[in-house]
Design a protein around this nucleic acid. Structure first.
Lengths: 337, 337
DNA sequence: CTGAAAGCGCTAACAG
DNA sequence: CTGTTAGCGCTTTCAG
């Protein structure tokens, strides 16, 4: 910058003023042009480190994730976060906690948070997908932090979470409305908070419709396509067999399609299926296309950084809606007309 | 740091020395302990901005991507890059060029590179997946940069690219070895350099096996699951019909499975299928599991940042191997035994 | 309208 | 073994 000043024949301060487009500084056009010309001819680049040091502002926000960024679910989330950050002129410093694919421990989280804090991030979004962030790491208290797809016990941090309960209920009601009575729930073992919430929603919806399946139609397995295949096989070979399947995610739903095919059942004629997530690689490309609950990852990511960047800091839990995406995998049960 | 010094009753310089574990500075245990205690009791955090300014080193490397990070292909790539960065004590500053999902233009790339440069990244990896980076943006010359899954015309930048040609050839040879003669290629329109390379490999492999299909078995469509369905339908209803399908990616292969099912053809009994990518959401979970060429995204991401961080700066094109992942979608053609 | 100067927090000579 | 000091590149107040 000193060089630029010399080249343009002005002082360094002047250079700073014009390069930052400072408003109140009535610097004449002619000088401005001269300065800019000098800057570009010297290939000058602002030094964000020095600027940040002086301004005590890094223009960076940290994005910490469990295992989420490395998962197909997540790309939309970081996209949303990036878009929101960029809109505010900030950058995202993304850190994954499961670097080598191994499980994460509390120390790793603390370390990552330290690194973020050392870089003076202006906020942290902690995307602990699938997990109840039971214990909020200490460091998060030092800067504006929001929990994404996770929530703290004490509620000391704002959080953005999908309305799992509402979505699951809506899914089951959709099936109920189509006329189904025997609806199986293909799910996975407890752990992620989502599974219990959805399970409860499933039961509540059934109960409210006056149906008591006595839990016989809950099939617990692995939340992958093969897991979906196995659990669907199990469910569809029971007697009486369910006429509809509500799956924990689209991958399990895909497995359910395979099981139906194997058993010679048509979707949706013989069995209706609804998924969860609306994964672009699966839901819209299955045949028939899968009706599913859309998990609005993009919006959640965006909301999270908007929350961090908001003028006033409000700590609240924001429930985000998961809309039903109706496609072709649901029909009235056979014989129902 | 000054506060810590005061608290510990030493000078600020001493604090710096102990907190950085400087080797040659024989600072007595007792002082070290006192300093560390003071630091942690005051909740002191190193300021990376100041440190970077002083050291002229940001410990950050930029990761620029076309649309890659936001795509399921890419997560492994950034994982690899992050792992390599972390191993070297660096962080990744990830920027996407297709922020709002719209197409990218040269200006966006230049802008992003400027932002990275202003933050004094120590290197840039430009992941221009699927694209020939015809024109290398100017800014890349100012810092160590490597092209990921792309290559520059002039070869002025090192690049890490998959061996598309070799992989495609291997795929076709695998089919040939199984006894297939009529092998169709389900592909997409030109654009990404990969399509032409693979197309050529397909033809060469056939030619070398003494087969001349006259291009009748090349089916061009959209590189998605529905696109795969359509092109496979087309291919499988020709006469004579191909006994094997080599697909541009796993998504098209998934579509091909659907088409086969629709036509009543069994995989692999009536038709063998090989994909490309080894997408975890698809290849291992299809029934039967898909034989495919693995695109080693993780390794490529890792290689890219290792290249940037290498002690000596070498400009070369690194071809990475795409191994055949044999699963269950290939068998000898009917009647071949 | 422009320049001089202080200082952001840190590191690394160098001196004591 | 520890303290003093200069300066990294920038912004901004205050004089001129």
């Amino acid at each position: 910058m000193k060089d630029v000043a010399q080249e343009a024949g002005v002082s360094q301060a002047t250079v700073s003023l014009v390069l930052n487009d400072v408003v109140g500084s009535g610097i004449p056009e002619s000088t401005q042009i001269r300065v800019r010309a000098a800057a570009s001819s010297l290939g000058y680049r602002h030094n964000a480190l020095a600027r940040g040091l002086k301004l005590q502002r890094s223009d960076t926000i940290g994005f910490l994730s469990d295992h989420i960024t490395t998962t197909p679910y997540a790309v939309a989330m970081v996209r949303g976060a990036q878009d929101a950050a960029r809109a505010a002129g900030k950058h995202l410093l993304i850190l994954n906690l499961d670097l080598d694919g191994t499980s994460i421990d509390a120390d790793a989280a603390d370390l990552a948070i330290s690194e973020l804090l050392e870089r003076r991030v202006e906020g942290i979004v902690y995307a602990a997908m699938f997990h109840t962030a039971v214990q909020v790491p200490d460091g998060l208290g030092e800067v504006r932090s929001v929990l994404l797809d996770a929530q703290s016990n004490g509620g000391e941090l704002p959080s953005i979470v999908p309305d799992e309960y509402g979505a699951a209920k809506q899914a089951v009601i959709h099936l109920l409305d189509a006329g189904h009575r025997r609806i199986a729930h293909l799910t996975r073992p407890s752990g992620p908070i989502a599974v219990d919430l959805r399970e409860r929603a499933y039961r509540d919806a059934l109960l409210e419709a006056g149906i008591d399946l006595g839990g016989q139609h809950v099939e617990v397995g692995v939340d992958t396509t093969p897991g979906g295949f196995d659990t669907a096989m199990e469910a569809l070979t029971r007697s009486p067999r369910p006429t509809a399947l509500f799956c924990f995610n689209d991958q399990m739903a895909m497995g359910a399609y395979q099981a139906a095919a194997e058993l010679g059942f048509g979707v949706p004629d013989d069995v209706s299926i609804v998924g969860f997530d609306d994964m672009s690689l699966i839901a819209p490309v299955l045949r028939p296309q899968l009706t599913t609950m859309r998990l609005p990852h993009y919006e959640m990511g965006k909301l999270a950084v908007e929350c961090v960047l908001a003028p006033e800091w409000v700590v609240s839990r924001q429930l985000v809606d998961c809309p039903l995406v109706e496609r072709q995998s649901v029909a009235p049960p056979m014989g129902a007309n």
